[in-house]
Amino acid sequence: MTGFEPPAPRLPPRLRGPLTAVLVTGPSMVPTLRHGDALLVRRGGRAVRPGDIVVAVFRSRPDLLVVKRAVRPVEGGWWVCGDNALGTDDSGTYGVADVLGRVVARYWPRPRRFSDRRV
């Protein structure tokens, strides 16, 4: 035994508490969300429905925390896609995602509430 242990895989921070702030990075949700938008994410509450904007982790990439649109439930998880078809890596690339929470509001730079209606 050499005493060397490979480093554990780095996992993204999980949502803590019922409401968590999340910052959008990248263009995958343009035009709905933009790089730098600050979001309020709710863990729990009502069940996720197709069309909801969610924070998720791909099963094939547990180190990658993403903001995407829930499309349909599959294999005990969700098929998720970005709104920007030209600039997104989503379930088409990484497969099924596990949803950690649902986006309920954007509080910076332009406050906007994401209600039960489609956005």
Rank of each mutant, 00 (worst) to 15 (best):
R61W: 01
V55P: 13
R10L: 12
G3N: 05
L40V: 07
A21Y: 08
V41P: 08
G77W: 11
N84Y: 05
L64P: 11
S28K: 06
V99W: 13
A21D: 09
S28R: 04
L65M: 13
W78K: 06
P62C: 02
K68L: 07
W78Q: 04
G3R: 10
V119M: 13
V30N: 12
R102V: 04
M1S: 15
V48A: 05
H35S: 15
D98T: 15
V99Q: 14
A85Q: 08
V54E: 04
L40A: 07
R102N: 02
P27L: 14
F58T: 06
V96S: 08
S60V: 01
A85R: 11
W79N: 06
F4Y: 15
R69L: 01
G92F: 10
P6I: 02
R59P: 01
L100C: 09
D52P: 12
T20W: 05
L33R: 04
A97L: 02
A105C: 09
G101V: 03
G36A: 09
R72V: 14
R72L: 14
G45E: 04
A8P: 01
A38R: 13
R34T: 05
R61Q: 04
D83Y: 08
D89A: 14
P50C: 02
T32D: 15
V99G: 13
I53F: 12
H35N: 15
D90W: 07
G92E: 12
L64K: 05
G17Q: 03
V104D: 02
R34C: 03
A47W: 06
A56L: 07
F58Y: 12
R46G: 06
T25R: 15
V22Q: 05
P73V: 07
A8T: 01
G26M: 11
V96P: 06
F114Q: 01
V104F: 03
K68R: 09
L39D: 04
P13M: 06
W79I: 09
V96H: 02
G51C: 10
R72P: 00
R117C: 11
P9F: 00
R61C: 00
V71P: 06
V24D: 12
F4L: 08
S115Y: 07
Y107T: 10
W78L: 04
G77N: 10
T93W: 09
P7R: 01
R61L: 01
V99F: 13
P111F: 09
L11E: 08
R69K: 09
H35A: 15
W108H: 13
P13Y: 01
G3S: 11
R118A: 14
D83N: 08
G101E: 04
A105E: 07
T32M: 13
V55D: 15
A38H: 10
R72E: 14
P9K: 03
P111R: 11
G95V: 00
T25C: 15
R110G: 14
R61M: 01
D52W: 06
D90Y: 12
R69D: 00
F58M: 03
V30F: 13
P12E: 03
T88P: 02
T93H: 11
R106P: 09
P18I: 00
D98S: 10
R46M: 03
D89V: 08
P73S: 11
S115M: 06
D37P: 08
A8H: 00
M29H: 08
L100S: 10
P31D: 06
V55T: 13
